[in-house]
Computed example of a mutant assay.
Amino acid sequence: MRPSDVAISNYRSIRRLFMPIQPLSVFVGENGVGKSNLYKSLSLLRDAATGRITRTIADEGGLNSVCWSGMRQRGDDARLRLAARFDNIKYSIELGHPGPVEAAFPGEPMIKSERIEAIHGKRKVLMMERTNSHVSVRGENGAWSEHRDAVLPSETALADFLDGKAYPEINLVRNAMQSWRFYHDFRSDPASPIRKPCLAITTPSLSADGSDLAAALATLYAIREDAADLQDAIEDAFPGAELRAWEDSGRCEFDLQLADMPRPFKAHELSDGTLKYICLLAVFMGYRLPPFIALNEPETSLHPSLLPPLARLIAKASRRADVWIVTHSEHLMEALRSESSVPLRRVIKAKGATAIEGLTAGGEFRDGEDDRDDDEDNDD
């Protein structure tokens, strides 16, 4: 399942946003307007599916650090709310601080509620509801099953109710969001794993840190036995160059032969920008693309000459997956608009909150570029 829209409330600089997911969504803005918070909030939804959302929030400093950073009116709560809708199913989660009688560490982020709704036109049917540690699930016959003390405050029902036959809606949402991929940056220092051989394991999608880069490339050569598109993309970015990837004694390696060099260069010898571009090739040209791919400032460390080929790479991948790009590069934005006619989505600050120009409260863009139906219900 591919997501159709997301809702975010009380996350850092985001007071309240409800927005559609298009095949290619590109957000550009100046530093400090909250672009990265868009990316991170969606990553938290994936963490709900893996069961790590409370740990991630704790790692970021706890709810006091990640919740809405602006002014609050008296009576406003400090709860973080996230939701994602797929074509006919919606998942939402709410997190808050421990109550006075709840068993938790001081300041620990707690999951207060989770909901899964099946959507049939304007009709919504609640399929799963979690309140604190009490989980209720609707079965195939419409009857509810009650599960008291089924989960800890730090655990999601989405990650813990694993019986796909008994809980098909939970299983569908969990699998959909677990398959999302987020790429923030690729380390390129001498000790980085992307510069080293890796285990020879069939790798359909590049991992978030790129540690299986050589295996992802070698999968195209040795498993698919067709790397023609990859070579075309290398030619587009580095005219006259040739990329090779192979398996040797249980390890995968790759090298790049540049047109003006007498010998090929292995990963540990490549420049930071060249190596990061090869990572992006693996992201967008893998054996099997994830249904949703999000990248935060993919242009970092790239020479300006690589931005048009990167735009072509992204535009082509958006035919196979939903692609979400957050960037501060106007040049990349213009290259993407040239390659895909993607509308400009500018991230701004409005009254201290992150906002997107042209986005209405109902999740539509005033420029008419978004042809998705209005959900009419933009609660979180």
Rank of each mutant, 00 (worst) to 15 (best):
H147G: 01
A104M: 08
T50I: 03
K276C: 10
S43Q: 05
W180M: 11
E334N: 10
D59W: 09
G240A: 04
S211H: 10
H184S: 13
A317W: 12
G62K: 04
G96F: 01
Y221M: 13
A200R: 00
D209A: 04
A150S: 14
A317M: 15
L126Y: 05
S43Y: 10
A157I: 10
V125L: 14
I89P: 02
W324A: 00
P304W: 11
S65F: 08
L313V: 03
G99W: 15
R55F: 15
P204G: 01
N10V: 00
A78V: 09
I201P: 00
L63E: 02
V342Q: 03
P153W: 08
L359R: 04
D380E: 03
G362W: 07
L302F: 07
L359D: 05
E339A: 11
A267Y: 03
D379E: 14
D87Y: 09
D185K: 09
I57T: 03
G62L: 15
A58C: 12
R187G: 10
M285R: 11
A267R: 05
P291Y: 02
R16Y: 09
R174L: 06
N31W: 06
L280G: 04
T156D: 04
S338H: 04
A282M: 03
I201H: 07
P109T: 07
T354A: 12
L220F: 05
F238L: 12
I234S: 01
L336H: 02
A49I: 07
A228N: 10
A216E: 00
W324V: 00
S4N: 14
N141H: 15
M128Q: 13
R74Y: 10
V6D: 07
D232N: 06
A245K: 14
D47S: 06
I234E: 01
F18V: 13
V137M: 09
V342C: 11
N296D: 14
G362R: 15
I223N: 04
D59E: 06
R244C: 12
R288S: 15
S188R: 13
C198Y: 02
S305F: 03
R345I: 00
G363H: 06
H120Y: 09
V135M: 14
W68E: 06
S205E: 05
A218N: 02
D248I: 05
L172I: 08
S136F: 10
D379R: 14
R346I: 12
E94W: 01
A166F: 09
E242A: 07
G121I: 14
I314H: 00
